[in-house]
Structure formats: C-alpha cells, structure tokens
C-alpha cells in the first residue's frame, strides 16, 4: 500500500464519520430522499471543471454550495418544501452534467467515484474541512434538534431556524464534496443516508443515533476498501452494498 493510498483510507474514514452525523440530522429533518438527490447537483460543476481542466472536486463543490444556497433561498421565498426543490434541481443537474461531460470514462467516474488515492494537499484540505464540519455539527446539535422539532419552540429559545437550515445545507454539501472522489455523485448521498437509516432502526437517543450512524458508515467505508484490495471490486458500489447490507440487518433488530 502506498502512502497516498493510506492517506486516502484515512480521509475516507473521517468522511464516513461526518456522513453519519450529517445523515442523522438529515433523516430527522425528513430530508432522506432530498439529501440523496442533493449530491447530484455537483455534476454540472464537475463538467465545467473538466472543460477548463480544473480539479473536478472544486467545480463540483462550487456547484453544490451554489445549489444549497439556491435551495435555501427558493424555500424561503416560495414556501415549497426542500424535497420538491431538490427533486427538480436533481433532474436538471443530472441532465446538464450528462451534456457537459463528454468523456464516458470521466462521466462514469463522476457518477460512481472509485478513485482510491488522494494527494497530500487534498488530504490536508479534506481532513481540515471534515473536522470543522464535525465540530460545527456537534456544537450545534441542540439547535439543529430544536429547529427540526418546532420552529415556534426554537424561536422562543433564541434559535434562528432559517440560519440553521442554511448552515445545515452547506455542511451537507461539504460532506458530499468530501466523498465525491470515492463514491461519485450517485453514491455519496447514500453514504450519508443509509447509515443514518440503519442507526434509526436500533437507537432511541440522539447520541446513540449519531454514534451508530458514524460507526456504520465507517465500517462500510473500511469494508469497501478491504473488498477492493482483496477481491478487486469497484470501491463505491462495494461501500454502499455493505451499508445496504447493514441496513437490512438492522431491520431484523428494529425496535418495536
């Protein structure tokens, strides 16, 4: 194993921990489908980055951040729910990305990921962003919980729900960017949602949910890298298949 491969596994593992936490809040905010679809908004940005020979992660990341702000703004102005807005943006983004990315190989990589090495610079930037995201989510967990329970209660407790929603969408987008290389736009949303859905089947408290979702995501990611090394399966599909398997097992243990 090269040093870069090791860095890649460490970054993927940290991304998994963040994914579990982000997914838990996304699920509680009833953003499961929307969250999964939001990651697709990166595709046109990746397309544009490839045309101008830039790092696809930068293009995808910018597209996601713009998408998140757009979703937040449309939601405020039109009172449509997040799910409806992301549903439309998802389809349009996928179509635009398909048009912009001409090479079939690059399109496949953008959709399914599979890149198992990162540069030192990508590693440092990725770890810094992941740790900051995790710190923000844990520090704001009470506000995030309260704003999903009731806007009225949040208001009387001094929580600005709209600001919380914007921050959350931005952190969600950042998490997607972190995992794009490994999982691509089609599968990264799943690493956020499936571990959280698994955790919800077996836990009843916030801390239990956050810890179980993060551990599930971590096991899926490490399992995916192991499967790739041992039986040479594709990285992204392996990770999500393991996460999916854990979800079905959790159904058996589901609390009444």
């Amino acid at each position: 194993m090269t040093n870069n491969e090791l860095l890649s596994i460490i970054l993927a593992a940290i991304t998994a921990l963040v994914s579990g936490v982000v997914g838990s809040f996304a699920l509680m905010r009833k953003m499961a489908l929307a969250g999964d679809a939001l990651s697709h908004v990166a595709l046109p940005g990746i397309g544009v980055a490839l045309i101008y020979s830039l790092n696809p992660a930068i293009g995808g990341g910018l597209a996601l951040l713009v998408g998140a702000i757009l979703i937040w703004k449309i939601e405020r102005v039109t009172n449509l729910n997040t799910e409806a807005i992301i549903g439309v943006l998802f389809a349009v983004s996928l179509a635009a990305g398909g048009l912009l990315i001409e090479s079939e190989h690059e399109l496949e990589e953008a959709l399914f990921g599979g890149v198992a090495t990162v540069t030192v610079n990508e590693f440092i930037a990725g770890v810094a962003v992941a740790v900051l995201s995790l710190w923000f989510l844990l520090r704001n967990r009470h506000a995030l919980v309260l704003s999903l329970i009731s806007k009225d209660l949040a208001k009387t407790a001094g929580v600005k729900t709209e600001t919380q929603q914007l921050y959350f969408l931005l952190i969600f987008s950042i998490t997607v960017i972190l995992g794009l290389k490994f999982l691509g736009v089609l599968l990264m949303g799943s690493l956020i949602i499936i571990p959280a859905a698994t955790a919800r089947n077996v836990t009843q408290t916030l801390s239990g949910m956050l810890a179980t979702a993060s551990c599930t995501a971590l096991i899926a990611v490490l399992g995916g890298f192991a499967a790739r090394a041992l039986v040479e399966t594709a990285l992204g599909p392996s990770i999500i298949s393991i996460a999916g398997l854990m979800f079905f097992i959790s159904l058996l243990a589901r609390r009444a």
Partner: peptide, 24 residues
C-alpha cells in the same frame, strides 16, 4: 404549543428534547 407533530420513532429521548433548549 397545543401539540407537536413529532414522528413516534424519532430517536430523541426526553433528555435530548429538554437539552435542546440549551442551544439558545
């Protein structure tokens, strides 16, 4: 409030709910 529409299987304990006031 008169009522809260919380899903019955939301993974929050009473302690989590009361602690959430800590945010503000």
């Amino acid at each position: 409030p008169q009522k809260l529409d919380i899903e019955r299987n939301v993974p929050l304990s009473l302690y989590d709910f009361l602690q959430s006031k800590n945010s503000g």
